[in-house]
Design a protein around this nucleic acid. Structure first.
Lengths: 191, 191
DNA sequence: AACGATACGGAGACTGTCTCCGTTTAGCAA
DNA sequence: TTGCTAAACGGAGACAGTCTCCGTATCGTT
């Protein structure tokens, strides 16, 4: 389940080149100018016409999604070591903190997508899937309450990512992610 | 601290009339078309020129904020009875649930503003202020941990409002607000 | 080498944002 | 009342961004 394997039919060589260039340029652009960055401008900087951009990505959301999927893959990779940690509950907690940090570093671009648990947005799916494994392991070890679902945890976490990434941009101070995730974990831990 | 008392200097009668009409029309429009609704269109429907709209509200955010402030006042009024409830902790919990419901009913327009604890966005301030009173009462009664701040609670809650209002729009199912608020409260309650 | 399918690019129609400035109006003072 | 001034209005229009359409170019295959 990586970005590359998701294309249904093989693209023509030039099409694939343009696709990849567009995603690369878009990533820079969104990071620099936020999710409102001009699409025509992105096309120009990628050396293609607007028509090409809109054929690959019918709307801004689609492009944003493609950018996020690539990012999500890299974030998910970060979770791999945690899957075999000796304390699954601590690992879950650590993962959630990292997730918040990653989203913050990504300027909150992904936070809007984080909570949809359907496959609709692939970004969400990758991260949801990764979280699920960690949640299951923590449950199996009896560290967290069995009635808590991954979706619920993601919903709770999304607020923190949202708050923290917002705060970073507007220079406000909020409590540290560790602290907030800690509060959530206090609620879902078995006692 | 209501919407009316916030104007620094008295407005001319026609200016006030237009201001109010604009906020009223904008409320309808944002509710119907989301926060991207056309501002010129709002001006037209309010029977004023674009210039007038932009003099009162220099940008979309300002107008959105004015709409939200009015809404926030009404939401805060809803909390009044809870302030004198016999069980402050239950009252707090109930308030948070209502908050999530209100934000959902308001199409998530306010969710972006909920978490800024500075006065910058008046919407946030009204709601933060109201929450603060309930939090303090719950702390005084020993119902919740003294180390938890109002801001923290609001940050945790904002994710739920965000998730729930998003879900409402895209037809997804998420856990009930009561359930999610319950999880948070489990984390902050004294044991 | 030739041909069909696939993809490209950019002109341009369209929509929305926001400004500028000549005109109107409210409020006040004489 | 009348007249004056500051405040407010409105709408034309410059500008920026979105997205489509279609003639042209390129790929990959036979």
């Amino acid at each position: 389940m990586t970005a590359e394997t998701r294309a249904p039919r093989p693209m023509r060589a030039d099409a694939r080149r343009n696709y990849e260039k567009l995603v690369a340029v878009a990533t820079e652009s969104f990071l620099a100018n936020g999710p409102e960055a001009s699409l025509d401008e992105i096309a120009k900087r990628a050396g293609v016409g607007p028509g090409t951009l809109y054929r690959h990505f019918p709307n801004r959301e689609a492009l944003l999604d493609a950018v996020c999927v690539q990012w999500a893959d890299s974030v998910a990779a970060d979770a791999a070591p945690l899957l075999s940690a000796e304390d699954p509950t601590a690992a879950l907690s650590e993962w959630l903190v990292r997730l918040v940090d990653h989203v913050g570093a990504f300027k909150g671009l992904a936070s809007a997508l984080l909570l949809s648990s359907e496959r609709k947005h692939d970004t969400a799916w990758v991260l949801h899937h990764t979280s699920e494994e960690l949640v299951e392991r923590a449950k199996a070890a009896g560290g967290i309450r069995p009635d808590v679902t991954t979706s619920e945890l993601m919903q709770l976490t999304s607020g923190i990512t949202y708050a923290c990434s917002n705060a970073k941009q507007s220079g406000k101070t909020v409590s540290a992610p560790e602290r907030l995730i800690g509060l959530i974990m206090d609620g879902v831990r078995t006692r």
